[in-house]
Structure formats: structure tokens, C-alpha cells
Design a protein around this nucleic acid. Structure first.
Lengths: 202, 202, 202, 202
DNA sequence: TATGAATGAGCCTTCATTCAT
DNA sequence: AATGAATGAAGGCTCATTCAT
């Protein structure tokens, strides 16, 4: 118990650093975030950051993992709620879109790391894994769900998740530069659904 | 004459630096590109780079402008070729997709700078302009083209270009992490067209 | 009893730290040895090292003292064995050479600290004491021994121990960079003796 | 000429850094010498040091080379002066001893690097080379010189240079901790010669 | 007695920028 | 118009040391 509480304290600090890193990267961008910035945000010394993480790289890796996990779990809970395949897809799409529109620290942080991931294999691997897992969840729902309900896709099934997720991320990306009005946001969501169901023969 | 040739020479050098910067950023990534790297690629001294551009920021801004212009003009020429609105949209979509799949230095460079643009207003401006101009060209074609041909969009017309361009960029982004097979690429292109025409009542 | 055992325990721990420091410095070199390294080798926490020693400097000083003592006592026991002065000198020389060739942790540790001692008075003191005591033991044997036996030194008696010990240490130092073959080692030992007796008129 | 003068300037600065490094290491010791210290001693910025040398390691390597060269050339000029083998050996020994007793920056700097060299292969190699070359010069003089004059060594010829150089370095090392009086210094030099010639049958 | 957490100074290095030439 | 030299700020990291427990 004594031991536990000690470790607990450390674990808390570590998490504090992690959260500070996520927030700072989201706010200033990856390239503009130094260990000092993270330490400041965590109200700790630079040394403390290195006490909890072997290196900046190590910290970033953990940041990425945490963010991916936060996002994945949001989508997963949408999938796991009961309902027809169609309902579940709609919910998942809504959830993803909401995640992007809310623009919480995790998604903004991941955006930064995606840009890094292009040149850094360490980051590319978990990102690719997250992308793939997201796609596969949709694919499962489409193939074992919609298709078995008699809906025939107009394009190879494997393409559908790419299209859906790509569209969502692309729209979110563009909206960073040309923000959508609040009406448009609703329109976009509806449009995504039109697109999604337009991919199947009725 | 002397003056002329000197200016000419300088202009050439300046362009040389610009091209070197584009190539280097595309190859190594923005965060990994130093002024020295650019100078090396341009076969000049670091001092020369600062002679032609006030600062690294200044250089980057010109780099971005050049890349945006190069891309925009590619799309524009697709629009400007003669044909029915439908043909022109198809051509423009194909051209954009081709641009992304070819992954020339300009598009790769822009990808790098988009991440920077999120946090740097100076860069956000030309990017936003490029996005908007691309969208407006599609919008024109849709509104003055397809719609006047009797095709009715299922979603507000203004959303359509966002969807199309977003999907293309999103797909390209994802494919950086999970490359598409060559067959899939063709499928994707077809799928985008299915999506595009699925947005209209037939 | 409790107190006793505790103190006992503490004394043991302290010694454990000391031994760990000696071993680590011998293995990695002084400059590459951190308090953490010592703590690891002693299977203790970094804090524990600072509990037993005021500072790293303090620890190092004790390390040096321990090593000097270990070496001095080895030489002393060679002196103290019975025999003619000549036998005793030969034994002492053999013992010193053996010490260097065995390259135990103490001698290696001392080698590391000698370099430090040049710039750190705290360390210079015990080193100088060790050197002097070694020399004086030889001097005693020479003056009260050999000389009283009728052997006349060709050089001032005070120089002889310096020469002998200097040669031994210098040979050992050089052999760190250009190791001696096993035959050569024996040759060297014999040569030292030739030198030693060459210093006296027969 | 213009170009030359430019390069000349840089070359001077580089040498200034090198000399500053030698002096600083000699004064404070290797472990206590930071790049900042060197920069200060050279009256330059830390950045300038890195402009002239790739890294601290690189600088140290050049420092070592410079010091070895300075020392070697002193000994070499002693060898190369005309005279009988015996005279040349005596002169070389005197020169080496003088070098150590003067304790110029080069020899003190090398002493520091020797201690480092034990654990750092990069340094060990040139040091070993210097040791070996010094020994071989003596060996040549002994074998092709003294021996051919009819003097027979009492010990294997290969051992003689080790003994001589070892004795000199060992004596110098010990005298760092227990300085010799000025009379003793002369005695020591004479004693070394006694030793040297005591190794041969007369 | 001993530990784990945290600090802060100092280190090596990189890099945009300036400037004399 | 262009270069090479030099600067100085900032960055990541190491490490001896302190302290509450």
C-alpha cells in the first residue's frame, strides 16, 4: 500500500507529463515543441521529463500511443453499441466527424505526428496500425454486415473504408484552412452519409 | 547590358535556391531541412541563400507559393480544356489524383508545409487560397455546368467540391501510410467518380 | 543488539558501495563512471550512495584510500617476509610487477585516479603518500641493508627507489598500449632486476 | 592571393582553437575541459569551435595528433643530429627527460589523453603508434648501433627501449606527485644513463 | 537505513543569422 | 552577387545532489 502510493505518485507525474506534451504539441505544433515547453506545461523541471521518459523520442512515442488509443476507443464504443450495421456505420461516421470537429488535443496532436510520421518510421508504424485498424472495423461491418443484408457495393469492398475515412480526414484537413460554418458542418455530415450509401446498389 | 545580365543571373540563382528548397523539403521533410541543406542542394553558400531571401521564413513562404501555383495551374489547365462539364470534372479529378499519386516534389513539399501552416498564419494564407481556388473551380463547373444541364445535387452544391477534394487529399494522405496496390489505385479513381456522380439525382 | 546489527549492516552497505565503485571505475574508467553506475553495481539506489558518502568526491577519495592501502599492504608483506636484503628487494620488485600484470581492480582504479590526482589536491595527497611510503621502504632496505653489506650504490641512494618504482610503473603504463607477450613479461622482470643490481658496484 | 589570405585567416583561427584546447587540457585536465572552456581560452564563441571541428571528439583527436607530433619531432631531431650511437642515445634520453621536466603544455596534455586512451580506442591508436615509434627509434640505434659496435646487451634488445622509455615516463609520473629537487633532477638523469649502459656487457 | 522522485546546472551540438570582404 | 567566418540562442540530454517518505 505504501509502495503503491509511491508508485501512484510517480505514475501521476508521468501522466501529467504525457498530458502536457499532448496539449503543447496540439497548441504549438510538433516542430515548435521543446522538452522545456513540455516541462513548463507540466509544471516540472526539464530533468523530470527525462526522469519519466528516456528521451524526447520516447515521450513522443508514448504521446502517439495515448492519442491513438483515445481516438480508437471513441470509435470502438460507437461500433460496439447495438444496432443494425447501417446504424452502426452511421454512428461511427458521426463519431469520427465529431472527433475532428471538436478538434480536441488528441486529434490535433495526431495531425502533427502524422506529418512527422511520413519521415520517421518509429511514428509511421503505430499510425499505420491505427489507420488500418480503423479501416478494418469498417470493412468488417460492411462485408459481414451490409453485404450479408443484400446490399451490393458498387466498388470493391476494400476501397469503401479508405474512401470513407479519407473523406472524413480530408474534409477535416481542409476545414482547418477554410473553416466550415455551423450549417455547413451538418450538411457535410449528411453528405458523407449520402456518399456512403451511394456506394451501394439499393 | 552588364546590369541586365547580372540581374538575370541573380534571378536565376534565386530560382535555383527556391527549387533546391522545394526538392530538399520534399526529400527530407520540413523539420529536417536546414538552410545549409538548401544551400548544399543549390550548390551555393549558406550566405547566398540569405542574400536572396530575408530569412528562412521568407524562403519557405516563397517555396509554398511556388508549389501552390504549380499545382493550381495543373488543375486549371484540366478545367480549361474543352468538353462537357462532366468530362471536365472527370478530367480535373483524374488530374488531381494523378498529381497525388505521382508525388512530385511540389505536392510532397506542400504536404510538409500544410502541417506548418496550421500554426503559422503566414503559410496558412496561400494554402487557404489554393484550397479555395480549387474548390471554386469545381463549384463553378457544378453550378453553371451540371446543374444547368438538369442534374440536381442531393446535397448543397457548395459542399460538393469540399467532399471531392477532401476525399482525394484524404485518400492520398492515408496511402502514404498504407500504400495502395496498383490495381487499387485504379479502383480508387473509379470510386471517386462513383462518389462524384452519386451526389446528383440522375 | 538491534542497533548493533543495524550499524553492522550499514557498515557492510558502505563497504559494498566502496567495492562497487572500485570495480566500476576499474571497468569503465573514472570519467565514465556516474553515481548511478556505482549504485547499480552495488545493487542499491543512487540515494543510498549519497547516504553513505557526502558527495561523489568524498566517495572517490575513500575509493582511492582503500586502493592505496590494498596495494601498499601487498608490498609491505613482501618486505616483511624474512630473508637477506637482496632477497627482499627481489621479492618486493616481483610483487609490484605481479600486481601490475595481474591488473586487479585496485591497480586499475588507481591508474584512473592518478590522472585526476594531478588536478585535484584531495586525491593527490593519498597518492603521494603511497608513492612515498613505497619508496621509503625500498630506501630503508637499500641503505640499512645493501649498503651495510658493503654494496656501494653508483648513484645517490635516494634515487634508487624512484628509478625502480618509476620503471615498474612506466613499463606497466606502456604495456597498456602495447601489451607484452608472455615471454616478454618474464624478460622484463629479469631486466628490472638487472637494472636494480646494475646500480651497485659489485 | 585574396583567397589565400581568407583561408589563412581561417587556418589561424583553427590553430588558435587547437592551441587553446591543448593549453586548457594541460591546465584543467581532460575531464574538466568543456568546449566552452576551449572557446573562452581561444577568445571565440562555442559555435566557432564547432565551425572548425566537427565535434569535441574530432577536436581532441587533432589535439592529440598535434601534441604527439610536437613531442616526436623533438626526439627525432635529437636522433638525427650526428654523433656516435652512444652520443645519440644519450642525447635522446636527455631530450625526453627535459621534455618531461619542462612539463610544457604538450606533454601535460598527452598525459591527460593517455588516461583517456585506456578506455577510448580512438585515442589509444595514435598513442600506441607514438609509443611504438619512439621505441623503434631507440631499438634501431641499439641494434644497428651499439650492438654492431661490439656491445652485447644483457637482456633481449627489444626490452631495452621499453625499459628506458618506461623509466623516463614512470619517473616523470612519480615526480608529479613528489617533485624532485633541482639537484635530484640531475641525479636522475645521470642514473638513467647508468641504467642504460648497465644493460650492456662492457 | 534506504528509496524514488525531482531539480538544476552544465554539456555537446545544431542552426538561423550577421558581417567583412 | 556571393562567400566563409563567426555568433548566440536554443535544444536534447546527463548527472550530482536534495528531499520527503
Amino acid at each position: 500500500m505504501t509502495t503503491r502510493s509511491k508508485y501512484k505518485k510517480s505514475e501521476e507525474s508521468r501522466q501529467q507529463v504525457l498530458d502536457a506534451a499532448v496539449a503543447t504539441i496540439a497548441r504549438k505544433g510538433f516542430g515548435q515543441t521543446s522538452v522545456q515547453d513540455v516541462a513548463d506545461a507540466a509544471k516540472m523541471s526539464k530533468g523530470a521529463v527525462h526522469y519519466h521518459f528516456d528521451s524526447k523520442d520516447d515521450l513522443i512515442q508514448h504521446v502517439l500511443t495515448q492519442c491513438c488509443e483515445a481516438l480508437s476507443s471513441r470509435v470502438r464504443s460507437a461500433w460496439e453499441s447495438p444496432g443494425t450495421p447501417m446504424e452502426r456505420i452511421r454512428r461511427a461516421v458521426e463519431e469520427m466527424w465529431a472527433t475532428r470537429k471538436e478538434a480536441g488535443v488528441e486529434i490535433r496532436c495526431i495531425s502533427e505526428l502524422i506529418a512527422q510520421g511520413v519521415h520517421d518510421e518509429k511514428l509511421r508504424v503505430p499510425l499505420a496500425a491505427m489507420f488500418r485498424s480503423n479501416r478494418e472495423e469498417i470493412l468488417d461491418a460492411c462485408v459481414t454486415g451490409l453485404v450479408s443484408m443484400g446490399l451490393r457495393p458498387k466498388v470493391p469492398a476494400a476501397i469503401i473504408p479508405r474512401l470513407l475515412l479519407g473523406a472524413i480526414d480530408g474534409l477535416a484537413l481542409h476545414s482547418l484552412f477554410d473553416p466550415l460554418g455551423s450549417e455547413e458542418e451538418a450538411d457535410v455530415l449528411k453528405a458523407i452519409e449520402v456518399v456512403a450509401f451511394g456506394l451501394f446498389e439499393l
